[in-house]
Design a protein around this nucleic acid. Structure first.
Length: 362
DNA sequence: AAAGAGATCAACCGCTTGTGT
DNA sequence: CACACAAGCGGTTGATCTCTT
């Protein structure tokens, strides 16, 4: 896989952009659109590489960018999403309108990470630090264990949701293609996503997937499947419950820290209104009372799925139910296999979106 | 007022992923 | 299938700003 030469070419400028350069880039894109980034600099009269132009545009010049302080709600969303998605900044940025991944990443590294660390929360795992746990009662440790356990479930479900969203889009595209080719009788086939062969490995996840995690997930899936509810509704509630539980130590620490901060000094970058809202509602409440639920966070993707699914749903409800059942069966089988398998190593990793990506199948 | 330390953030680097041939 | 290229992504750097002594 060859690497693009980019700025290695001689004569290309690097470093901070001047207002003149910004103006040139802005004017060119407004008039022509960016098109091919590689050829853009020459056309726009810039001594920059295309990559540099793209970055400048996406991170700074784009008109739909909100700059300045992050609101409390935005902060909470970032923390919540980071707990679920890890350092997947672009994925997090899709849930924060008008914020760039770079901005979120910087904000996390310079503000939120430190703030969590100060509160005794590991910014990587979003759980109380082990040293803090050591000084706590056994029940706290047990709680953290349970939270970690549920966090795995939440991560698993998050991964699946993403895959499901992609599946729905694929299905719709195929349906449209089918109708376009005048084969109206062609049935809409929605294959369930299958796990990657050879295990649930992921290049990024280091979390462990215990037998009990699998068993819990199995029961959760069984309930969702057998309860007669739609898969998405069941998923949403499962995900929210799992995630809320996983976030509980973080929320508790956040509230505790806020109380302390209130006694000592006001939050540096939280204005009065935000602070009042925060104090009044509480982080836990914001996350759990539905005003900032996991569904909210996942809504952009979920809304797309719902809208597209609705468009497709007319006249194919029964088929969908059948497919849904098959789909849940395959998931359940996977989980049961994992749970029952004595050879499953305790440190087997949690599947991530990559592992369930339907893209692998098409 | 000056120097040093720490914080911030735009930009770069290098790797991965997607797509066309 | 293999390759090349473009674009996207996340980690890191370094210039600049702000705070502290």
């Amino acid at each position: 896989m060859g690497r693009s030469p980019c700025c290695e070419k001689e004569g290309l400028k690097k470093g901070p952009w001047t207002p003149e350069e910004d103006q040139k880039l802005l004017a060119y894109i407004e008039q022509h659109g960016h098109g091919c980034w590689r050829s853009l600099p020459a056309k726009a009269g810039l001594q920059r590489c295309g990559k540099s132009c793209r970055l400048r545009w996406t991170n700074y010049l784009r008109p739909d960018i909100k700059r300045g302080k992050f609101s409390l709600q935005e902060e909470q969303t970032i923390i919540q999403l980071h707990a679920l998605l890890g350092n997947r900044w672009s994925a997090i940025a899709t849930h924060l309108p008008k914020r760039t991944d770079n901005e979120i990443k910087n904000y996390w590294n310079t503000h939120l990470k430190k703030r969590l660390a100060k509160m005794g929360i590991d910014p990587v795992t979003h759980k109380p630090r082990s040293d803090a746990l050591a000084t706590s009662a056994g029940s706290t440790a047990q709680h953290a264990k349970a939270a970690a356990h549920l966090s795995h479930t939440a991560q698993w479900e998050s991964a699946r949701l993403e895959a499901e969203a992609r599946l729905a889009r694929e299905a719709k595209l195929r349906a449209l293609a089918a109708s376009a080719s005048a084969s109206a009788s062609a049935p809409l086939h929605l294959p369930p996503p299958a796990p990657a062969p050879g295990g649930l490995d992921s290049p990024t996840s280091t979390l462990s997937f215990s037998d009990s995690s699998a068993a819990t997930l199995a029961s959760v899936l069984e309930a969702a499947r057998g309860g007669g509810r739609s898969a998405s509704t069941a998923l949403a509630s499962v995900l929210e419950a799992a995630h809320a539980a996983a976030m509980q130590p973080v929320q508790a620490a956040f509230e505790e820290a806020f109380k302390e901060q209130q006694q000592q000094q006001p939050w540096g970058d939280v204005d009065g209104e935000d602070a009042a809202g925060f104090a009044g509602t509480g982080f836990t409440d914001l996350l759990l009372d539905g005003s900032l639920s996991h569904q909210d966070v996942m809504r952009p993707a979920a809304a797309r799925v719902d809208a597209e699914a609705e468009a497709d749903a007319a006249g194919s409800q029964q088929q969908e139910t059948e497919e849904e059942k098959n789909y849940w069966d395959s998931i359940l089988n996977l989980v049961n296999t994992s749970a029952a398998s004595a050879s499953l190593p305790a440190s087997a990793v949690v599947p991530t979106p990559e592992a369930y990506s339907p893209v692998r199948e098409f």
